[in-house]
Design a binder for these strands. Structure first.
Lengths: 186, 186
DNA sequence: GTCTATAGCTTGATAGAC
DNA sequence: GTCTATCAAGCTATAGAC
């Protein structure tokens, strides 16, 4: 037996899957245990803070993905439309072509303010701001840039909801293809 | 003491609130009991099928609202743009200006196929189809009508997600105002 | 680092008095 | 129709062996 039964990366992958499929309250330790192949006690060894810490670790990693694969390319070199197409490709991969739900959706239910909700809010806020910045760089007015960035996020999030409900990833994928137009339209 | 402590309508109102705020798994009987003012046993007297039946009753009522306040006006008399504005007004009321989440979102987590998920799917499907029909009546090509209907639902659902996460109902309300353009654009 | 076993609480659901 | 009291099962979390 190896020192660790499941590597950190794969463990976080599976945790991510459970949380975005079932939400925080629906992600019971039984489901997590089954999905990861680790018993309860082993999970607590890795995450002494329990379920809350697992969710935070998942969000932290998603935040890194957002920074490295979305925000960085968006503020990198290249034509604005190309940067957005690059992001769309990363989103296509991350969301399994629309088959996976977004943590920003699944982990935002319940009204009590928490570290998790703050983390989710920061992620979405940074995303909107990065999109608006690209639009401004492409010559869109600040006000319109902000609105079009919001529209893009709405279309993406709503597209994922539709995919989950209707079992149809078409709208989400079409939104990915239209992102440059939605964000840069002048 | 009146025969019933809480009237059916108000009971369903409060149940709706709990389910769309916390999702199905997060809507514990403790929360439901607190929100409705009824003890567990009283809830089971009204809904012998338990939590599942409560959620179904909530969805059934939401389906009636959808039919009476959204689908009916959409297929009624009047100019297409006016019908859509009428719907937008009803949506504004139903979602508390964006402060309330949508049941189609909150009750669609978890992958196991269920009566609830089927109910949710039918609701969203009928909504998309009704919007596409209005667009076609306004002269939009069938293909474009379908896409613009999907975009409208995506924008609405995503706007509600954004509102919940960012605590900002602006994008949702702006989408409501833009609905005629989104759906009827030729 | 993983496991079995278990503690203690919360869950969904029921029985029976009023 | 509502309530108190209760149940078994599920939950999160912990102790301690290997």
């Amino acid at each position: 037996m190896p020192i660790t039964k499941v590597k950190d990366e794969e463990l976080l992958d599976r945790l991510t899957d459970v949380f975005r499929t079932h939400g925080f309250e629906g992600a019971s330790l039984s489901r997590i245990s089954e999905a990861t192949g680790l018993q309860r006690a082993s999970l607590y060894h890795r995450f002494p803070g329990g379920k809350e810490e697992m969710a935070q670790a998942v969000l932290e990693r998603a935040g890194q993905w957002l920074g490295n694969r979305v925000l960085a390319p968006l503020s990198g070199p290249g034509k604005p439309a190309d940067r957005i197409r690059k992001m769309a490709h990363e989103l296509h991969l991350f969301y399994g072509g629309g088959k996976h739900s977004c943590l920003l959706d699944s982990l935002s239910f319940g009204f009590e303010e928490s570290t998790i909700k703050r983390h989710v809010r920061e992620g979405m806020g940074a995303w909107v701001e990065a999109l608006a910045k690209v639009a401004r760089e492409a010559g869109v007015s600040p006000k319109k840039a902000r609105q079009q960035a919001q529209d893009a996020i709405s279309l993406l999030q709503g597209g994922l909801v539709m995919a989950r409900v209707l079992n149809d990833t078409g709208p989400f994928e079409r939104t990915l293809a239209n992102l440059p137009h939605v964000i840069l339209n002048n």
